[in-house]
């Protein structure tokens, strides 16, 4: 495996120093690697305060880790030369949550597409640039003649978000980081955007990191999933295993909390965990201990390491302490290989 983008034992603390009581531990000794040879879709799922936004900012080099390293092709993002940084910014593209905020309302949507073409000299002529832009628009299911020349407010949220996916595609990136790309898009349009992410992975060999609060869409598009709880990994591995047979009490709680859109009414009858969420001060132990129905005294003493419960899954919970433990940076060794063979990009 050749590692493309990697966070290695990354910790991010906001405010104060390590011993400052007002500081916030946003990400705690977190590791994740994206393989360059086998383009995959990895989902990172967490609720608010889980550290998923911090993770995306760290992986994009927008913020520096307090401890640990984020590397792209072996180079530390914080120590890149200008040329390396430029290559990184071309190879790793991002799609943000809000398809409204990323546009300047005074420019036509053409602007967000033409700028990267010019900046990275992707086309040698005006006509070639136009052709390139039309190609990527078609690739995400938009008709160029109905899209170009318009102002952002003349497009729907779903169309605007698809233009952002098209923009990411323009640069033929190797990794796309999609940070809640569909949470502000209506249900009937969500499927189209998720399908285009999947196609980009399968047909163009682009690795995708899908960061979201929504376990259902994460299940639908990813090969592997990482469940974050307050800056730490609760459970990670093959999405089928994690979603169908969750092992961490937090993953179980999350899954049972999702109201399912089906005729079977099971949601409100399950009252086992209906007590209010409690957050105690960050102690030394498992961060979920205060809410966990299976908590033991040990859980409050030291945080559990990752235990590899299955070939393709690791769980950070003492309930599974009979399984072999994994070092944080070895978590991805438990990941499943992408389920379909994907074409390499040219």
């Amino acid at each position: 495996m050749s590692t493309l983008l990697e966070a290695r034992r990354v910790t991010k603390i906001f405010g104060g120093g390590l011993f400052d009581r007002t500081s916030t531990l946003a990400l705690d000794d977190f590791s994740l690697a994206i393989d360059g040879d086998r383009p995959s879709i990895t989902a990172v799922v967490g609720e608010s305060g889980s550290g998923k936004t911090t993770l995306s900012r760290l992986l994009l080099g927008l913020t520096a880790p307090t401890e640990g390293r984020v590397r792209y092709e072996g180079r530390d993002l914080q120590a890149m030369s200008r040329a390396e940084w430029r290559a990184f910014r071309r190879d790793v593209q991002v799609i943000f949550q809000d398809p409204y905020e990323v546009y300047n309302p005074f420019y036509r949507v053409d602007h967000v597409l033409a700028t990267p073409v010019a900046k990275f000299r992707l086309a040698s002529s005006r006509a070639a640039a136009r052709g390139l832009i039309e190609d990527v628009l078609r690739a995400v299911g938009l008709r160029p003649e109905e899209t170009l020349g318009r102002f952002p407010h003349q497009l729907s949220g779903g169309q605007r978000q698809r233009v952002m996916v098209a923009r990411a595609l323009l640069l033929k990136p190797r990794v796309i980081l999609a940070d809640e790309p569909v949470s502000m898009v209506d249900a009937s349009l969500r499927a189209t955007i998720l399908a285009s992410l999947r196609r980009m992975n399968a047909e163009l060999g682009i690795s995708i990191l899908y960061i979201t609060h929504d376990l259902t869409t994460a299940y639908q598009i990813s090969d592997n999933i990482v469940v974050l709880y307050r800056g730490s990994v609760a459970e990670a591995g093959d999405v089928e295993l994690v979603v169908k047979q969750p092992r961490h009490p937090y993953t179980q709680l999350l899954l049972s909390s999702i109201p399912q859109a089906s005729a079977a009414r099971t949601w409100m009858t399950d009252n086992a965990m209906a007590s209010a969420a409690v957050y105690d001060a960050a102690g030394a132990g498992c961060k979920f201990a205060a809410r966990c129905p299976s908590v033991a005294s040990r859980c409050r003493e030291a945080a559990p390491p990752l235990f590899q419960t299955d070939r393709h899954r690791a769980v950070s919970c003492y309930l599974h302490q009979d399984a072999p433990s994994l070092a944080p940076e070895a978590m991805v060794s438990a990941f499943a290989l992408p389920s379909v063979t994907r074409g390499r990009r040219s």
Binding site: R190, A191, T216, Y219, I258, Q260
Partner: peptide, 15 residues
Amino acid sequence: ASLPSLEQKGTFRGI
């Protein structure tokens, strides 16, 4: 039909 489910993969499609 456009809603993703936790039961089955890849069965949802947009309008």
